[in-house]
Deep mutational scan, measured.
Amino acid sequence: TFELKGKVGKVVKIAEDHYLVEVEGDKWIAYSDEKLSLGDRVMVVDVDGLKLKAKRIP
């Protein structure tokens, strides 16, 4: 999973306390310091076990 750092994905679902992000065809649980919206493009900035930390990108 460490190779996911720096990869770009898309928010495909918003849950109460996390997001579901699709990166290279796989879906991952993600969290972010900022509020994300459905369809936002994100970059993986860190990997915490099986969770990704994501940041919105333009």
Results as ranks from 00 to 15, higher is better:
K27S: 11
E24V: 07
S32P: 02
D33C: 09
Y19N: 02
S37L: 13
K55Q: 13
E34G: 08
I57F: 09
K5I: 15
D40K: 02
T1Y: 15
P58Q: 12
K53L: 05
L50A: 10
E34L: 04
G9E: 00
Y31I: 12
D40G: 05
W28I: 02
L38P: 09
L4E: 15
S37C: 12
Y31A: 08
F2A: 15
R41G: 10
E16P: 12
D33H: 08
D17F: 11
T1A: 15
D46K: 03
D46E: 10
I57C: 14
D33V: 09
D17H: 10
K51Y: 05
E16L: 13
E22T: 11
V11R: 00
L52S: 01
A15R: 14
R56V: 05
Y31G: 07
G9Q: 00
V45Y: 03
V47A: 07
K55N: 05
E3L: 04
K35M: 10
E22Y: 08
D46A: 05
L36I: 04
K51E: 06
R41W: 13
Y31C: 12
D48V: 14
E22W: 09
G25C: 08
E16K: 12
L52H: 01
A15E: 11
K10S: 13
K51L: 10
E22R: 07
G49M: 05
L20Y: 11
D40A: 07
L38F: 12
Y19L: 05
L4A: 05
E24P: 01
V8G: 05
G25Q: 08
V8H: 11
D26Q: 14
V44G: 01
D17W: 11
L4N: 04
Y31P: 01
D33L: 09
E22S: 07
V42Y: 01
V47W: 09
G39L: 11
E24S: 06
R41K: 11
F2I: 15
R56N: 03
K10I: 11
K35A: 11
I57Q: 06
K13Y: 12
K7A: 06
V47F: 14
S32I: 08
F2S: 15
L4V: 14
E16D: 13
V44T: 02
L4R: 02
Y19A: 07
K7Q: 06
K10A: 13
D40L: 04
I14Q: 08
R41D: 14
T1L: 14
G25S: 07
R41A: 13
L52V: 09
